[in-house]
Computed example of a mutant assay.
Amino acid sequence: MPYPDTGALTGRIPGASGLEPATSPRTAASPSPGLLKRIHQYRYPVRRKLQCCFFWTANAQKNNAPAYVTAASRLLDEHNLELDVCPGVEKTAAHTLPFNALVDISHEEELRNLAHKAHYHEGRIPVIFCRFAGALGGESDTLGYLVRLENWLPFILINVDKTSEDGVTLLHEIGHASDCGHVKSKKGDLYPNFMSYPPPTRTGILRNQVIRLAKSYFARNA
């Protein structure tokens, strides 16, 4: 499915897509107000909530869910979107999965099955906070990733032992689940995109990305 609202406008002002703008310098102090509002300050016409269901593995002692939800909520609210989290940001017994290993890709199906058994969450994207192993943990930069399996809708794994400085990792993976691809940001961008990698601190969501988030399988009217 093609991205909605792509074309010349997408790369016209600093920070739009990580591309050199066609008509304005990247460090322009006053980009066109019309373009700024249409691309960077777009608000979805109907308030939409992105429904998540959080789970934690039994050995997840740390919890970065509160920081990630706070950062995501701040960015989403500017575009008339919000997070709706079940059961909340604190680990509960009902949402604790009986899993004590360090997670690698061989555990993805097992974790998804455990989440399915633990709580009915139709219409919500499962987010599993866990401890990463091997190439996914230790000194690697992997903070979380989207999992796509043949028999399940996409779901997210988050590394509880490491947290991004800007707190945007959860929203970044939610973006992937909404079919948003990576966008390159550079120093000097007005709004470094949430689908880029920091630094700089990610603060922007483009119009086409807002639309994709609002139309994701786990989005509903607020």
Rank of each mutant, 00 (worst) to 15 (best):
P4R: 02
T6P: 00
R12V: 05
R12A: 05
I13L: 11
G18H: 05
E20H: 04
P21D: 05
R26T: 13
R26F: 00
T27W: 10
A28V: 15
P31N: 10
P31E: 08
P33I: 01
L35D: 14
I39V: 10
H40Y: 10
Q41E: 14
Y42R: 02
R43K: 15
R43H: 05
Y44E: 08
R47H: 14
R47K: 15
Q51K: 15
C52W: 03
C53E: 09
F55D: 02
A58S: 14
A58H: 04
N59K: 02
A60H: 04
Q61T: 13
K62F: 08
N63F: 13
N64Y: 05
N64C: 15
N64G: 15
N64M: 10
P66L: 12
A67C: 04
A67W: 03
V69W: 01
T70R: 13
T70V: 13
A71Y: 03
S73G: 14
L75Y: 00
L76G: 01
H79W: 11
N80T: 10
N80W: 10
L81S: 03
E82R: 13
E82C: 15
V85M: 02
V85I: 15
V85T: 12
P87Q: 08
P87G: 10
G88T: 15
G88K: 09
K91I: 00
A94W: 01
L97H: 01
P98C: 11
F99A: 04
V103W: 01
D104F: 07
S106I: 11
H107A: 14
E109L: 15
E110F: 04
L114C: 09
L114E: 04
A115R: 07
H116Y: 09
H116N: 14
K117H: 09
K117G: 11
E122P: 02
I125T: 14
I125H: 03
I125A: 05
P126E: 05
P126G: 04
V127H: 04
C130D: 00
G134R: 08
A135C: 08
A135R: 15
L136Q: 01
L136W: 09
G137C: 06
T142G: 04
T142L: 11
L146K: 14
R148N: 14
L149H: 08
E150L: 13
L153Q: 14
P154F: 06
I156A: 07
I158E: 03
I158G: 03
N159E: 06
V160R: 00
D161F: 00
V168A: 07
T169E: 09
H172F: 09
I174F: 05
I174N: 00
S178W: 03
D179P: 00
G181T: 12
K186N: 13
G188F: 08
D189N: 11
D189H: 08
Y191E: 12
F194T: 09
M195Y: 00
S196A: 15
S196V: 06
T201Y: 05
T203I: 09
T203D: 07
L206I: 10
R207A: 09
R207N: 08
N208G: 01
V210G: 03
V210D: 04
K215L: 12
Y217E: 04
Y217A: 12
F218V: 07
A219C: 11
N221C: 14
